[in-house]
């Protein structure tokens, strides 16, 4: 035992430079990630700034009870899920489809140009993207001018409940579909070419190759990305929601994360907002855990 301990100590000493290099990273994670997690205890307290986090009195689950009983609870839950489910259905499959289409392009130069162009919007700030949306979709903006030529009445795209979700998901699709393909394209290039040649000799057409070789080849990638996406089910798009939000669409655009911001940082109701945030985080984590478990059971692909 003693010998073992000495050996371990020696091992540590031998790697002291590695540990020293890792130290700033370690402290970064402790201070900026784990201390805030510990700070979540204010969700169970009546936090008063002058008493500090530790000095403030415990109040148990009062903040959570208040949130569950509040007038906004169901609306927030619904808005959050609806936005994310639309995003999941209308956005998530698109990069896969685009990657498959790009994969069929045999002219290398053409493919590279299309890819490069399709990545660009991903790198433009959300502020600019939302600024463009406000400009193009305003009542006298270019989109309304174009549909005016077609004899359609001007639409109030920006400040009505009706158009909020299509605008949100549509612009996400426009901005990110190209960038989203990158991970699938690298998965596609790692499929063994011999498989396609063998399939050809066996008389398989393009469609059969797609079903029996290509899709199984990228399935693990799709599953992992799906698990990660569902693990952020409740928090995707916070900054964009905040930028797109206005009094005209607040009924459908207010989601849990923006509510946390409003309650916590604008109204300085820290404990209550932390409780709402914790609720959100726990749901996210449970969803991640659940999907990961299901995936491990049925597909042998999982995060851990």
């Amino acid at each position: 035992m003693r010998k073992n301990f000495d050996a371990n100590l020696k091992e540590l000493f031998k790697n002291r430079l590695l540990l020293l290099m890792f130290a700033p990273v370690f402290f970064y994670y402790v201070i900026f990630n784990y201390i805030p997690m510990f700070g979540l205890i204010i969700a169970f307290k009546d936090f008063r700034p002058y008493l500090g986090i530790l000095g403030s009195p415990w109040i148990g689950f009062d903040n959570f009870r208040q949130f569950f009983k509040s007038f906004y609870f169901w609306a927030l839950l619904r808005n959050t899920f609806v936005l994310n489910i639309y995003d999941l259905i209308f956005y998530f499959p698109m990069p896969i489809i685009l990657a498959l289409l790009l994969n069929e392009v045999k002219r290398k130069r053409f493919k590279t140009i299309i890819q490069t162009v399709s990545y660009i919007p991903h790198f433009i700030s959300l502020v600019v993207i939302v600024g463009l949306i406000y400009d193009f979709f305003s009542t006298n903006g270019i989109i309304n001018q174009i549909i005016g030529f077609l004899g359609i009445e001007p639409q109030r795209f920006l400040n009505t409940n009706k158009w909020y979700i299509p605008m949100f998901v549509g612009s996400t699709l426009w901005q990110n579909v190209g960038w989203g393909t990158i991970i699938y394209i690298s998965a596609l290039t790692s499929i063994d070419h011999a498989l396609y040649e063998a399939a050809y000799i066996d008389g398989a057409g393009s469609f059969k190759k797609l079903i029996y070789i290509t899709l199984p080849g990228i399935a693990p990638t799709i599953i992992i990305l799906l698990i990660l996406r569902i693990g952020h089910m409740m928090s995707v798009g916070f900054e964009k929601v905040l930028l797109l939000q206005n009094p005209g669409n607040i009924e459908v655009s207010e989601v849990i994360s923006t509510y946390v911001y409003r309650k916590g940082l604008i109204e300085a109701n820290y404990s209550f907002a932390a409780a709402v945030g914790l609720f959100n985080g726990i749901i996210n984590f449970l969803l991640l855990y659940l999907v990961n478990m299901l995936s491990r059971k049925f597909s042998e692909t999982s995060l851990w």
């Binding site: 994670y29 997690m37 979540l40 986090i53 946390v260 916590g264 820290y270 907002a273 959100n280």
Partner: peptide, 14 residues
């Protein structure tokens, strides 16, 4: 930390 975080309020208070 990729799957769970303190979130907005504790980070702000920190």
């Amino acid at each position: 930390t990729m799957y769970f975080s303190g979130g907005l309020i504790p980070n702000y208070l920190l």
